[in-house]
Simulated assay, not measured.
Amino acid sequence: MDGGASRTAMMAAGGRAAHLVVDCAPYLFEDTMASRLLGEQAEELIGYHLQFGDHVVLSGTRAQVNARSSYTEHRVDTGFTQYVILGAGLDTFAYRSPLARQIAVFEVDHPATQQWKRELLMAAGIDATAARFVGVDFESDDLAAEVAAHGFNQAAPALVSWLGVTMYLTEAAISAALTVLGTFAPGTELVLEYALPPELRDESGCAYAEFALPATADQGEPWLSFFTPEALTDLLDKHGFTVAEHVSQRQAVAPELWQRTDNLNPADLCRLVRATVRD
């Protein structure tokens, strides 16, 4: 972090923005707001993808962030009136999607990261009131109390997304958060991204991990947690969730979107799990 700026948030937003410039149609996901939100950083980040876009980490990042966003935002449009984005970073759903005018969107992140995002929104002339900013230090703050203080209705089911975060946390920290999320209203749905252990990765996932994991560790953000689908199912079950499905990157979008003329390919390094809070 540099004064609140999140490197991982910039890389994710850069991957979504670059996808529409570097890769060919059909697009996995169309984040038409990411480049605008990145402001002065957009040209540099997209330029890097244009120059080195076939590298396994850059192409892998574009595939990962766009596939997971596509899957998750499709889940928003299934009748929920509340959407909680944990580790929101530079997510643009609230400022881009027509659905955001019909539901309450809660962006949960560290206060310093949120201040940085507010500054980017202001600089881009984007209305920040489209989302409710819930500043939370996960080490010390009460997540349930904080979202309730911002108008979250704990009696109504919500969609909760938790993307690009759990691999940086210990299992104890993940378990603590799931304890809170498990108290949300029955029918609340969680879409969580998790990293696979080495023995379950495919060739593309191994290649991505070989480059990316040492780089993030060198930058002070090592990957700490890895789960088999079975182990994560057990953990979620213990916290009151019933798992509906585990989704690979290939499965996260329609099959025809992987019939491509560019070098964008799915990798099995991280997966999504969709689970529901039980009655």
Rank of each mutant, 00 (worst) to 15 (best):
P186G: 15
F152D: 11
I103L: 15
D142F: 02
A123N: 10
S225V: 00
A215W: 03
V165H: 01
Y27D: 04
G4W: 01
D109A: 06
R7Q: 08
A131R: 13
R132M: 03
V147M: 15
G79R: 14
G240L: 14
P98A: 08
G14C: 04
L190I: 09
E43A: 04
F52Y: 11
P266Q: 13
E210N: 06
V147Q: 13
A5V: 02
A145K: 13
N265A: 13
L38A: 13
T233P: 08
E40T: 06
R201I: 08
D262P: 07
V105T: 15
T228L: 10
L178N: 00
K238R: 15
D141R: 03
H110K: 03
T261K: 09
H74L: 08
E40F: 03
P98I: 06
L181R: 04
T228Y: 09
R132E: 09
G240N: 12
S59Y: 06
A67H: 12
V165L: 05
V160N: 12
T242L: 13
I103Y: 14
R118Q: 14
C206R: 14
A17V: 01
V134W: 10
V180T: 15
G151Q: 08
A207L: 06
G3H: 12
E230W: 12
R260N: 02
G60T: 02
